[in-house]
């Protein structure tokens, strides 16, 4: 797994993709920080994360679109599959490489709470919670992207399918406001990962959404391994 992680992680930075991603990510978070925290003179980062979340849907698929589709196109999957590594090692190695690039960006954004802490009082528990929630939400998006990428040889189709799936989950939240049946509303909201983020903005450590995000990530990574295994059988 380490070998695959290293290769994938490095390949983000031998191609332009890693730099492009980090540039967009830091630009967006920087602008959001300026508009939300500095513009409104608030120390709470919940507004910041609520905005960044929306944008995450659009730039995270950049990281995952080539993850598996490129291997399939260049036939390098033949090397991976015929090497003495398990499917899980391949999938996790690649997923964590994308996750690692994201985390590089996230670590840099820690400057913002530091700036707040230096000039005001930072609501620490709330901020930590927001970070945990953001990272977990992003891992769900990356897992969905990885799954879509494993389905196709084309990076464009992989990215488009990921956008489709993500927009669908966002719409679930919007649709729910037009539904009168309360059970149905709850189900719709429960199915939408981005809606669950509000649980993290309260500053209380709640395990339910954490487990929800982790299991969703695991589920899509599991689907990805299934795609791999299934393709061998055909």
């Amino acid at each position: 797994m380490k070998a695959i992680f290293n290769r994938e992680f490095n390949s983000y930075f031998t191609s332009m993709l890693g730099y492009v991603f980090l540039t967009i990510f830091l630009l967006l978070t920087g602008v959001m920080f300026y508009l939300v925290n500095i513009g409104y003179m608030t120390a709470s980062m919940t507004g910041f994360f609520a905005s960044v979340n929306r944008f995450a849907l659009f730039f995270l698929p950049l990281l995952t679109m080539r993850l598996f589709s490129e291997d399939r196109k260049l036939k390098t999957d033949q090397l991976l599959i015929t090497s003495p590594v398990s499917t899980w090692e391949i999938v996790l190695g690649k997923f964590f490489a994308a996750f690692g690039v994201l985390m590089t960006g996230v670590v840099i954004t820690l400057i913002y709470p530091c700036v707040i802490a230096a000039h005001g009082s930072l609501p620490l528990a709330e901020t930590i919670n927001c970070y945990i929630g953001f990272i977990l939400l992003c891992s769900v998006i990356l897992a969905i992207g990885a799954f879509m990428s494993s389905l196709t040889e084309s990076q464009i189709i992989a990215a488009a399918a990921t956008y489709g799936a993500l927009i669908f989950t966002v719409l679930l939240g919007s649709v729910s406001s037009y539904v009168s049946n309360e059970t149905l509303v709850n189900i719709l909201l429960w199915l939408s990962p981005i809606q669950r983020f509000s649980d993290f903005t309260l500053g209380i450590m709640n395990f339910e959404p954490i487990i929800y995000y982790l299991s969703l990530t695991g589920l899509f990574l599991f689907f990805t391994t299934m795609v791999f295994e299934n393709r061998r059988l055909r």
Partner: peptide
């Protein structure tokens, strides 16, 4: 087994 498939599985960026 060492395997050389029909199309060598090379990462062109490496």
């Amino acid at each position: 087994i060492g395997y050389l498939p029909e199309i060598p599985p090379l990462y062109l960026d490496m």
